[in-house]
Design a protein around this nucleic acid. Structure first.
Length: 405
DNA sequence: CCTCCACCGGAACGTGAGGAGT
DNA sequence: ACTCCTCACGTTCCGGTGGAGG
């Protein structure tokens, strides 16, 4: 081999265009979303007639095509508006990033060529800058707020202002599209905001296995070379994803990772076996991701359990044992240990996250405890825990434990 | 049948950080 | 710059509990 990367860059036999399988890719066709597309287009078409489209709330779990559908319809609308010479702007912002009133309006004002700093101004000043920017001429503006539920917590004011902005504008009109995966989030809202935001509602149901299959076929045709996938692959990916929540994003990830595994193993075709490997890999990734984002104390508790199960043959431990080990580790790390009460809460949280299994057991004379056991493979947590530099010191304890065994 | 273990988990409270209002 | 509020995180206190062993 001449170069280390020679093999790796030569366009694989398997993928034709991997990007098509990314969840950020907006496809040209959205199978099984015709109804939603039509509803959305119906409502938004008002903008082309010089009217103000109703505000829309879109509900649906992750991977049900909400964002893709909105982006798709937005593109179509923008194209048509341009053709007809209608002034129509479509803005998309993710409320996870723009999660306060200030950030939202600063972004919007900037879009309309107003120079505003990202912080420092009073919120109402930003708001009026945005109004000035937008109202310079006759136009229709449609603002899509993805993950509005995030905004509802910290930036309800922004929703309130946006929903009643039209009464303060002379030339332009603003409509809102809110996307949420939490069906109950409007309960948190001021009733006035709630009614104005939800003038129209569109629900995106989860996909079933059959529909996922159609989606995958659609994308696979572009993503893979001819004959690069076995017949069983797509139905299998669809079945895996459907057994969770009908999440198309997950189905696509699964298909992409399967392809990557097949490519790396030098196989000419993606086979069933690759899908199973991919499924396992994604599972591990999920665990890794969860463990990585755990607060430090929680990580120490988990480490305690890990050390215990490495040290002894037992798999289950009373919360007392876990707590004692936790204290030991804290001592080792030079940290103050929290109270047992707090640690029981951590254990419960770990239980909810599915990293740990905790059951309350009565041992009569010998009290009553939670029996805690690790519910994921030891190795999959250990490596992630040791990545935390603060936890490095624990590895020396493990060495000692192994020596004494 | 009673006791009593070893912990569960609710309630009230303290504290510091960060935002909003003024 | 100032206070006021809210919130997350912890602590202290404590009543509650199912069943092995007396």
């Amino acid at each position: 081999m001449d170069n280390l990367f020679e093999d790796l860059i030569s366009e694989g036999r398997i993928f034709a265009n991997k990007e098509v399988l990314r969840s950020t890719h907006v496809p040209e066709k959205l199978p099984h979303r015709n109804e939603q597309i039509k509803d959305l287009a119906d409502i938004l078409s008002a903008a082309l007639k010089g009217e103000t489209p109703s505000n829309i709330l879109i509900y649906g779990k992750t991977g049900t095509g909400k964002t893709s559908t909105v982006k798709y319809v937005s593109n179509e609308l923008e194209e048509m508006a341009q053709k007809r010479g209608i002034n129509c702007s479509l803005l998309y912002l993710n409320s996870e990033v723009f999660d306060t009133q200030y950030r939202v309006f600063a972004y919007l004002a900037r879009f309309f060529n107003k120079r505003v700093p990202m912080l420092g101004w009073p919120a109402d000043m930003i708001y009026s800058e945005f109004k000035n920017g937008i109202d310079t001429k006759e136009r229709s503006v449609i603002v899509t707020l993805d993950e509005v539920d995030k905004l509802a917590i910290k930036g309800e004011e922004a929703l309130y202002n946006l929903s009643r902005i039209n009464s303060e504008l002379k030339n332009s009109r603003v409509s809102l599209i809110g996307i949420s995966n939490d069906l109950t989030f409007t309960d948190l809202l001021d009733p006035r905001v709630k009614s104005s935001l939800g003038e129209e509602e569109i629900i995106f149901p989860p996909y079933n296995a059959e529909q996922l299959r159609d989606i995958l076929y659609e994308r696979a045709a572009k993503a893979f070379n001819d004959d690069a996938i076995d017949d069983a692959v797509i139905p299998l990916c669809a079945a895996f994803a459907a057994s969770e929540h009908g999440d198309a994003r997950r189905a696509l990830d699964l298909l992409r990772v399967s392809g990557e595994i097949a490519e790396r193993s030098g196989s000419k075709k993606v086979c069933e076996e690759h899908v199973r490997l991919a499924s396992g890999k994604l599972e591990v990734n999920k665990v890794t991701e969860v463990v990585k984002t755990l607060p430090l104390q929680s990580k120490i508790v988990l480490s305690g359990l890990l050390v215990l199960s490495k040290e002894s043959q037992k798999k289950q431990f009373s919360s007392g044992e876990v707590y004692n080990m936790y204290r030991k580790l804290c001592g080792h790390l030079g940290m103050d240990a929290l109270t047992q009460r707090r640690v029981t809460d951590f254990i419960s949280e770990l239980d909810i996250l599915g990293l740990v299994n905790a059951v309350i057991v009565n041992k009569g004379r010998y009290g009553r405890t939670k029996e805690v056991s690790l519910s994921v493979p030891e190795e999959s947590v250990q490596s992630v825990l040791l990545e935390d530099y603060k936890l490095k010191a624990i590895s020396s304890i493990k060495v000692r434990a192994q020596v004494t065994l």
